[in-house]
């Protein structure tokens, strides 16, 4: 069967939506499908498609099914890979789930299989970006005591890093804002909240915070830049390695690289 002849599933792009699509593919007996996000799908006038409506109950059944068939580390890979937001990953995750359900338990270790390996490798890339954001977040303290940071990660890792920051910075209110995806996570000393700031407000925020920044912020920003310079060993200069570890696209968010771009 050519891919053109495969049924087209349209889902909402969410994790639950994906799991629902997997559920429905069994109900409708469609072992192979094409999978598209509603947002990006441009229907051709002659093609019919199947609308998938995210369904919590169906999604959770698929999730529990996966839980029973794959090692917990691979369940984590499945979840992380989803946040890569890569066009091809939704279908790869779909095929992976079908492969797992259609075979006896243990096949999640078959790294010789294209989809199993692809999920493991994509989750590793997402994990690396998650780890990088745990490293590269730079808080600035505002006058009212809020520690805030702006990031622009390659993948949508904010949901994956919030637990780390909540555990570590339990005694200070903080806000991490993803500039590219236009949403942030706010911790108010009790719980995490997702926040969205529209464009005009965002500008107001930067303008405002410039005024109400904490009195000591400038000192510690300066001391950190000084430290970054002093701890370098000039005789060992290796800019290639430096840029490999700290790629240029992150510099504008890093205090120690301010003014270096």
């Amino acid at each position: 069967m050519l891919t053109d002849d495969l049924p087209i599933y349209i889902f909402d792009g969410t994790f639950y939506g994906l799991l629902t699509a997997i559920f429905e593919s069994y109900e409708r007996k469609h072992p192979r499908i094409q999978l598209c996000c509603r947002e990006t799908y441009a229907p051709e006038f002659f093609s019919g498609h199947i609308d998938i409506h995210s369904d919590k109950v169906k999604a959770q059944r698929v999730w529990r099914g996966l839980q029973q068939k794959v090692a917990s580390v691979h369940l984590g890979h499945f979840y992380k890979a989803f946040f890569s937001e890569q066009a091809a990953i939704h279908l790869a995750l779909f095929r992976y789930a079908r492969y797992i359900f259609d075979h006896p338990a243990g096949h999640d270790f078959n790294y010789g299989h294209e989809d199993v390996l692809a999920i493991a490798q994509m989750s590793q890339r997402v994990h690396r970006e998650k780890h990088r954001m745990e490293a590269f977040v730079r808080f600035k303290k505002s006058g009212n005591g809020l520690f805030f940071a702006v990031i622009s990660p390659d993948y949508n890792v904010l949901p994956l890093i919030s637990k780390h920051f909540r555990n570590r910075y339990a005694d200070q209110p903080w806000l991490i804002y993803d500039e590219r995806r236009k949403y942030g996570i706010h911790y108010d000393l009790h719980a995490l909240h997702e926040v969205t700031i529209d464009f005009t407000q965002e500008q107001a925020m930067t303008a405002q915070t410039a005024v109400i920044i904490d009195a000591q912020e400038e000192l510690y920003t300066q001391l950190w830049k000084d430290y970054f310079r002093s701890t370098n060993i000039a005789e060992r200069r290796n800019m290639k390695l430096h840029i490999q570890h700290v790629p240029r696209r992150y510099w504008r968010y890093l205090t120690e690289k301010e003014g270096k771009l």
């Binding site: 555990n167 800019m239 290639k240």
Partner: peptide
């Protein structure tokens, strides 16, 4: 405040 785990490199100097 704070915890420890698998370790994080927060930045890299120009010597890499």
């Amino acid at each position: 405040i704070g915890d420890t785990g698998s370790g994080i490199c927060h930045t890299y100097t120009e010597d890499g």
